[in-house]
Design a protein around this nucleic acid. Structure first.
Length: 861
RNA sequence: GCCCGCGUGGUGGAAUGGUAGACACAGAGGACUUAAAAUCCUCAGGCUUUAGCCGUGCGAGUUCGAGUCUCGCCGCGGGCACCA
């Protein structure tokens, strides 16, 4: 081979790894004598959308760098891959193009595996599974039954997006501007009986345990803490006037009892029992409640909807002044799921309440004011941080001047001692609703019996499999709704308890359930129970989990709940309570969007390969200029997805891997550029030539050899540090510099061979095929994948002389070279003797001289 | 609307509170070549030129010293419980 050819090299080494079983993780039962530590690295598994995406390449390359590095530092490594295969897109595809979600999904998986294999990831493919495999979801059903037995699951009512035209439940993403995406009908919020996991029982635990997650990003822990949302407040009851029977009290919860003297109304949710009672007796109330329930269920939709209230005519007495009566409104912005579904409004110190008071002409009363300055409470609410000290003008308890926090505590104590309610701690976290009215998910293994009620399936009947057809007729996905619901031969069954005719639950599970325990299943993917305790005990926890920041809250929080629930039900050891020891959240790969507009002004999107770039402007083949929207998240509908398969075919896997790791820090988004891939490819060819064209006759040269070996040890040190701290871009920049050093070095053949072999090893986690090839050319023993990682010699890292910048008043004016170990006084003397300093001082004495050894000198004049 | 991030040359980006722009891309100039490709070498933040001034989204502040810390804005991105 006369030049670098990825097409020749890559398949060869992939076969060599496979033949040597390099990446097959051992079984725990075979490791009794192994003194190697274990290492479990996992990237969030993909949804089988059909083709891999350059973002997948980036994500899995990062994991692969870690996996290969850990292998070469003497670990037993588990690095598996699977597919998060249930979910809506498969059903949508079946709806749009016919076919069956199962066929669509498995065909996509085949394609994606075929696209991933050429990338040379060090994965243990023998452990692969998809969550839609009956073998997997059957064990998930077993878990559900175990959770049910331990009271970790229950049923209650909850609201869903209801499309009144299609008569179906919609996902949030199927609601566009409050309307159903297919029917265009205004969506309403409707209650259904659904299954829930009792995650809220673990609110405190999940919150407290965040402190133990030392290797998680602080921002993720903060987001989870805010999501769980512990608050201290006062729960108390207003007594009512003119209310229907059994409603002589309205319980409210407030985090601001210190503003009780500024209350001007009480608001209740349209789903509050009192609202429902009134709704039943009044067409007017019913009309308002229907109006209030319009729109989607997301918190965002509810927050952004115009605030509306309905005066019920009912009044409540203020707890501290029974002559003072407040109106009771039904309001569309109050959630039944949080607190008691009822609040009191304090327009003086809350923007939303202020808007509401303005709209319905309610009094706005100030309870506290800033320490200094004037405010107009009628014009705008005064909402300072709770930690800020303010002056109370209508004081409930405590000092006149105190912080909001202090005032809340004082008010709670005061109210308690006066028999008005009690202080309570509440959490924002709600129970996890897992029922989905859809086909392509894990069936919930229960049966509804007219006599016995809700009956769990017997474990020996698992898996309850999804039907593929209906007595030989393909299932029809062209009509909205859940096909399981209209599938009599699947739905009708015998009650597992009494044997009488009964009906299966037709709801399936939220796909978050599938992804909440897959990481445990990888430790024993074919066990006949959800986990094999011996394997789980050995391989858990995941030492390094890698995935997108978009999963910071839900997926990770649900997984943390599941690992606890699995421990309670005997499927995981106590030590796996927190399943992910370290978490890394990587950024997205973005690409410019190229668009023109059609006659109606609607955007038309063009593929990157259709566009020629000149002077920062883009043109189509016919010469028309395109509008360039920079750095957008890759999305099929915008035609800005870069297909990695093309890159791999053109340049090879190592180039693709090298490119996605270079330049951008892994946690940040990266912009895909074609020129970047080209440059990466050129560099790899240069590195290959270093090994292939090494001059075997070059004589040794003591000075040059030492200089090069020093560079080598520094590179080993820096690259290793980069790999260990997810600074892959830094490692690569360092490898560029080291490559330059090797290339320019006049060292002898032996030193150059040593340095180049180290270069191959340092590159091996990123460009493993090239590294193997170089290793072979340079006479390395066996596979570089098996070679122990090089260790830097500390003695070679220290320079004898350092360059110190000299600042005058914080601005760099000169620099001096001094021995690294020179003491401060000597350095100061040298600095002050420098002509630039003498000139600046102009005979005066410096006010101050700061010497930071090895860093800087600052002379203050 | 609420929660969490991010913002540095033409571009991607580097920088334990200590020389802002490492390392690359694109660019310019040169070498080699009949020519091109490939490769190699040199230059390169901006404005002025013996030297200096301005520069890390904007405005304040802390500090001997701020891209980095604090406060207030602006812009962009992620999440908001049925997208995964």
């Amino acid at each position: 081979m006369s030049r670098y050819s990825a097409a020749e090299i890559e398949p060869k080494w992939q076969k060599a790894w496979e033949d040597a079983n390099v990446f097959k993780a051992p079984l725990a039962q075979d490791l009794r004598d192994s003194d190697k530590p274990k290492y479990y690295v996992l990237e969030m598994f993909p949804y089988p959308s059909g083709r891999i995406h350059i973002g997948h390449v980036r994500n899995y390359t990062m994991g692969d760098v870690i996996a290969r590095y850990k292998l070469s530092t003497g670990h037993n490594v588990l690095h598996p891959m699977g597919f998060d295969a249930f979910g809506m897109p498969a059903e949508n595809a079946a709806m749009a193009n016919g076919g069956h979600p199962k066929d669509w999904t498995y065909s996509n998986i085949d394609t994606m595996v075929a696209q991933m294999k050429p990338l040379g990831f060090g994965l243990d493919w023998s452990r692969m599974f998809a969550t839609c495999d009956p073998e997997y979801y059957g064990q998930q059903q077993a878990l559900f039954l175990d959770f049910l037995a331990k009271d970790l699951v229950y049923r209650k009512n909850a609201v869903v997006n209801w499309d009144p035209v299609d008569m179906t439940v919609l996902a949030n993403e199927q609601v566009e501007n409050g309307r159903g995406w297919r029917s265009g009908a205004e969506v309403e919020r409707r209650e259904l009986t659904q299954w829930f996991f009792k995650i809220s029982d673990y609110s405190e635990e999940l919150l407290e345990a965040l402190d133990t997650l030392d290797n998680w990003p602080a921002k993720v822990k903060l987001m989870q803490a805010n999501w769980i949302g512990r608050s201290r407040g006062l729960q108390f009851a207003f007594s009512t006037v003119n209310a229907p029977e059994h409603f002589d009290r309205i319980d409210v919860y407030t985090t601001r009892p210190d503003t009780l003297a500024g209350a001007s109304f009480v608001g209740i949710s349209p789903d509050h029992p009192l609202a429902k009672e009134l709704e039943a007796g009044s067409a007017e109330v019913a009309a308002f409640c229907a109006e209030a329930r319009r729109g989607g269920t997301t918190e965002e939709a509810i927050e952004k909807a115009e605030k509306m209230g309905f005066d019920t005519g009912i009044r409540v007495r203020h707890p501290f002044d029974t002559a003072w009566e407040l109106p009771v409104y039904i309001a569309n912005f109050i959630l039944m799921d949080y607190g008691t579904g009822a609040i009191f409004g304090c327009p003086g110190h809350d923007q939303r309440d202020h808007d509401f008071a303005k709209k319905y002409d309610l009094p706005i009363v100030e309870t506290f004011a800033p320490l200094e300055g004037e405010i107009d409470i009628q014009a705008a609410p005064f909402v300072p941080a709770k930690t800020e000290k303010v002056r109370y003008t209508r004081l409930i308890a405590g000092e006149e001047e105190q912080t909001g926090e202090e005032a809340v505590n004082a008010a709670v104590d005061f109210c308690e001692s006066n028999g008005v309610g009690h202080g309570v701690t509440k959490f924002r976290l709600r129970d996890w609703g897992l029922s989905r009215q859809r086909y392509w998910g894990c069936p919930i293994p229960v049966v509804h019996c007219p006599d016995c009620g809700v009956v769990p399936e017997k474990k020996e009947n698992l898996p309850i499999q999804l039907p593929y057809d209906e007595d030989g007729t393909p299932i029809d996905f062209s009509i909205p709704g859940n096909p399981l619901d209209r599938h009599p031969s699947w739905r009708d069954c015998a009650c597992p308890e009494c044997g009488q005719p009964a009906k299966r639950e037709t709801d399936t599970m939220d796909t978050f359930v599938d992804s909440s325990w897959y990481y445990t299943r990888f430790t024993a993917p074919h066990a006949t129970t959800p986990t094999d305790m011996a394997e789980a005990a050995y391989w858990m926890n995941v030492d390094q989990y890698i995935g997108g920041i978009e999963h910071a809250i839900l997926h990770l929080l649900y997984s943390r709940f599941f690992s606890r629930a699995m421990q309670i039900t005997g499927h995981l050891p106590e030590s796996a309570k927190e399943p992910f020891d370290a978490l890394f959240t990587q950024g997205m790969v973005t690409h410019a969007i190229y668009q023109t507009r059609n006659a109606e002004g609607r955007p038309v999107y063009h593929y990157p390969e259709e566009v020629t770039l000149r002077d920062g402007k883009g043109y189509l083949e016919d010469g028309r200029e395109v509008e360039i929207i920079p750095s957008a998240k890759m999305s099929k509908s915008k035609n800005n997805v870069v297909d990695p398969v093309q890159i791999i075919q053109q340049y090879g896997a190592d180039t693709a891997r090298w490119f996605v790791l270079s330049d951008s820090p892994p946690e940040r988004d990266v912009e895909w550029t074609a020129s970047g891939a080209e440059a990466a490819s050129k560099h790899l060819a240069r590195v290959w030539r270093l090994a292939a064209e090494l001059d075997a006759d070059a004589p040794a040269d003591a000075t040059e050899d030492t200089a090069l070996l020093r560079e080598m040890h520094k590179a080993i040190h820096d690259v290793t540090l980069g790999v260990e701290s997810f600074g892959f871009n830094a490692s690569i920049a360092r490898l560029y510099a080291f490559t330059n050093a090797v290339q320019k070095s006049k060292a002898g053949a032996e030193a150059k061979r040593t340095a180049t072999r180290a270069l191959a090893q340092l590159m091996s986690p990123m460009t493993p095929h090239l590294a193997e090839e170089m290793w072979q050319i340079l006479g390395g023993e066996g596979l570089v994948a098996h070679a122990p990682w090089p260790v830097a010699d500390e003695a070679m890292l220290v320079d004898d002389v350092v360059t110190l910048p000299i600042q005058i008043n914080g601005k760099r004016r000169a620099e001096i070279d001094v021995p690294a170990d020179m003491d401060k006084a000597e350095v100061e003397k040298l600095a002050l003797a420098h002509h630039a300093v003498i000139k600046a001082l102009d005979g005066a004495t410096p006010k101050k001289v700061i010497v930071v050894p090895g860093r800087i000198v600052n002379v203050v004049i």
